[in-house]
């Protein structure tokens, strides 16, 4: 069977049904703008865009992907249309990759919104683009898989939203984006290193400001491990909880 046909159609259906809807499109633009504006006002207009950019990009990815994916999968599960996908003769891993690919793309595009705005204000000539793209894509993948992990762990849409915040907000404050890890209390520092966003944010710091805390290769490898772990755990949860 030509599985790529199923993959492409699940991906394009999700893009049309969820990600290209006006509220989600506006979310993708307004959210990064709001964050940038917030920091701009807080700094009294004297804002260092280069210092701000990695954080806003990472948060745009995190909130864009986790919000949408966890809600859409829970919604389809509740409406039983997800059952139709489970009945299709495609492997569960392939199916979940198809279901998450739209969110990955949405997250990556969200990340480029603040970058495009910044391009009109500051010179981005010093940015390491290859590293930045790798960082954006991997952060998007890991955030999407975190959203997937949340989606398969709950059964109601409101639970998905609550559970998402349980992960997202502590992560934002502990991953070093706004408070450097070395300034966190000693007992909280180990926690930072078990959060995928720490590595995603650090790669973007390295790509934009050349001020990464860890070697880029290490952060990239850590993100790959997180991606694989979250994906396999989510697929296993579906097998255990949904096909039981």
């Amino acid at each position: 069977m030509k599985q790529w046909i199923a993959f492409w159609n699940i991906f394009s259906k999700d893009i049309r049904t969820y990600y290209l809807k006006p509220p989600n499109l506006s979310w993708g633009i307004i959210f990064p703008l709001a964050w940038t504006l917030m920091f701009f006002i807080r700094s009294g207009g004297d804002v260092d865009l280069f210092a701000l950019l990695p954080g806003v990009m990472t948060m745009s990815i995190l909130f864009g992907t986790t919000s949408l994916l966890s809600v859409t999968i829970t919604f389809e599960k509740k409406g039983r249309s997800f059952e139709r996908l489970l009945l299709a003769p495609i492997s569960l891993e392939y199916l979940m990759l198809a279901k998450t690919s739209g969110a990955i793309m949405f997250g990556a595009i969200n990340a480029f919104v603040p970058l495009i705005i910044a391009a009109f204000i500051v010179d981005l000539g010093a940015v390491s683009w290859a590293l930045l793209i790798c960082g954006v894509v991997l952060t998007s993948v890991v955030s999407t898989f975190l959203g997937l992990f949340i989606a398969v762990a709950v059964s109601e849409v409101f639970e998905a939203q609550t559970f998402s915040n349980f992960f997202r907000f502590p992560m934002v404050f502990l991953c070093g984006l706004f408070f450097p890890i070395e300034r966190l209390p000693v007992f909280l520092r180990p926690l930072s290193y078990v959060l995928p966003l720490t590595y995603g944010g650090d790669i973007l710091q390295g790509a934009v400001n050349q001020s990464a805390l860890m070697p880029s290769a290490l952060s990239l490898a850590a993100l790959v491990v997180f991606c694989a772990g979250l994906f396999l755990l989510s697929v296993r949860t579906i097998r255990v909880k949904w096909i039981c």
Binding site: K2, Q3, I5, A6, W8, N9, L85, P89, I90
Partner: peptide
């Protein structure tokens, strides 16, 4: 869409 899940062109 349902047809595409079975690999139909």
């Amino acid at each position: 869409f349902c047809a595409s899940l079975y690999g139909m062109g």
